[in-house]
Design a binder for these strands. Structure first.
Lengths: 192, 192
DNA sequence: TTAAAACGTTGACTATAGTTAAGAAATGAA
DNA sequence: TTCATTTCTTAACTATAGTCAACGTTTTAA
């Protein structure tokens, strides 16, 4: 399993043997079974995750119903916006499948950055990459209609439709399940 | 003007005299007059900005009309999602006011990180901060209705309403100017 | 295996946003 | 100042999403 992580990291930096060893030894890979709640509203977030296998969902509780804002799958990094900050999380993180992930913490990060300064460069670069992604996602979200967002999602992450219930997808698209149902119907009719 | 930047940086790291000098000497502070286009669709982005005074708008051109996705004002960092990447920008950056900004480039960044490694830590931390902000903004956007988004904007950035035309605000909220007009009217009636 | 719960679709109705067009108000340039 | 342009509002109408309720299907757990 470590190799997936190492493969990913080596896209951005050269992995020395020493670093390779440190990663293998640190053994921070954990298994979580479906339904595990990694973070609850109100909790402090002290862990971040790199998903090796599985799927994690981020959602908010708004007046009793769940608003899904993100799905994280293989090779994605899960960092709560409250991670490492001393403020309670406003959202939940939940495994929607059995999940294997490499788990980090501010302490581990600090130690690793100290031992391997190249990792801090990596973290900066990865942070930039993730930030542009959020930036683009936000822009896309503002620009596109619900129907267009659904089509884009189908194109960009076709696997999600098979992996998570449709009402969570609807919520992720910012609409109600009934509306997604109707959008799908509308598209089927257009197709003909 | 530099002091604003230095003040901002010192929130996150200790500024040594040497670094202070380097910042003052590098003289990368520039003035842009209202209407200046900092980046156009199709261009490569080689500059990032820290706004000392003024306002920059990010927008996309979608079938002939402008979709505003961001406003950057004092003490905010403007980084196109294509900055430093070798791919053409999909959006525009335009000064909506006379603007004074500290201008950075990948080359300058690299040089400064080399001379002052603490700056790379800073960049990582700032990247994290900005990322959480985008994350939260995206979540808010998905959770809230246009009306709620408008109310949140009024609360979070009341100055914007005075600084930019309302149709750009509408676009920023993901709605048409006519709809924003109606929302405002609706809210006035509720208030009574 | 079966009963309960969760999920997806549909229909009728409501609320709100988009579209088009017109005109009033504010802004900017000659 | 004055004219032209941009911006904002309003109205009528259309399209789409939200709400509520019902129902059939699928999944889950006892």
């Amino acid at each position: 399993m470590e190799e997936i992580l190492i493969n990913y990291l080596s896209k951005y930096i050269t992995i020395t043997d020493e670093l390779l060893l440190a990663i293998k030894e640190s053994g921070f890979i954990k298994n979580f079974s479906k339904g595990t709640v990694l973070l609850s509203e109100g909790d402090l977030s002290n862990e971040c995750y790199f998903i090796l296998k599985g799927c994690v969902r981020c959602y908010y509780n708004k007046d009793g119903d769940e608003k899904t804002t993100d799905f994280y799958t293989e090779e994605q990094v899960v960092i709560s916006s409250s991670y490492g900050k001393n403020k309670p999380s406003e959202h939940y993180l939940e495994c929607v499948e059995d999940t294997v992930a490499s788990v980090g913490s501010p302490e581990l990060e600090a130690e690793m950055y100290h031992r391997f300064p190249q990792l801090e460069s990596l973290a900066r670069i990865l942070g930039d990459v993730m930030m542009s992604k959020y930036q683009d996602t936000l822009a896309e979200y503002k620009i596109a209609s619900p129907e267009e967002r659904y089509l884009n999602l189908l194109k960009d992450r076709p696997d999600l439709m098979q992996r998570v219930p449709q009402h969570q997808i609807a919520s992720y698209l910012g609409i109600k399940p009934e509306s997604l149902s109707r959008i799908r119907k509308r598209l089927l009719n257009k197709q003909k």
